[in-house]
Simulated scan of single mutants.
Amino acid sequence: MIDHTGLSVSDFDAAKRFYDAALAPIGAALVMMVPEEFTGGVKVAGYGPDRAVFWLSEGPAQTPPVHIAFHAPDRATVDRFYDAALAAGGTDNGPPGLRPHYHADYYGAFVRDPDGNNIEMVCHLPA
């Protein structure tokens, strides 16, 4: 349904460090930087497993902060995301665990990125 999405981030370098670490557990990495001559000098980065599907753009932070959930193939990946995201400067917004009020097999973790966006990694499979 959604082909790609992105965020405006107030500190591009801090956001890049955070997303480099937080998205690594799902095999997503920086796949391109748009040349600044095409962006008016603004830093723009695209992340994905093979093509850019999640974008960061240098600018004012999202107001209000947004919630973005990434799909994990298993619960261990959710755990790795949480640890990596916290180590990269994120703040806890809900440790890994079941969220049965959403769905019986909903296993997720929530971390605030450097701009306060609620970034989630979720797995919908049973243990």
Results as ranks from 00 to 15, higher is better:
P114S: 03
T39A: 03
A104R: 02
F12C: 11
G6A: 13
F110H: 02
T63I: 07
A22G: 09
N118D: 06
L56N: 01
G59E: 11
V53F: 04
P35E: 09
Y19R: 02
H101R: 09
H103Y: 14
D3W: 09
Y19Q: 10
V111Y: 00
Y107G: 11
S57G: 15
N117P: 08
G40C: 04
P35C: 04
V53K: 10
I2W: 15
P49S: 14
V122F: 01
V34G: 06
A22C: 07
V111S: 02
P60S: 13
G97R: 06
V42N: 03
C123L: 01
P73L: 00
A127P: 04
P126S: 03
G59A: 10
P100H: 02
Y82H: 15
A29S: 15
D83H: 12
P100S: 01
T77I: 08
D11Q: 11
I119L: 00
A127I: 05
I68A: 12
A15I: 10
A104C: 00
R112W: 00
H71W: 11
V66P: 06
A52M: 04
P49C: 10
D105P: 01
G41I: 06
L125W: 02
R99C: 09
G46F: 06
V53I: 11
G90D: 12
A104M: 01
E58Q: 14
Y19H: 09
A24S: 14
K16H: 14
M121W: 03
I26D: 10
S8P: 07
P64T: 12
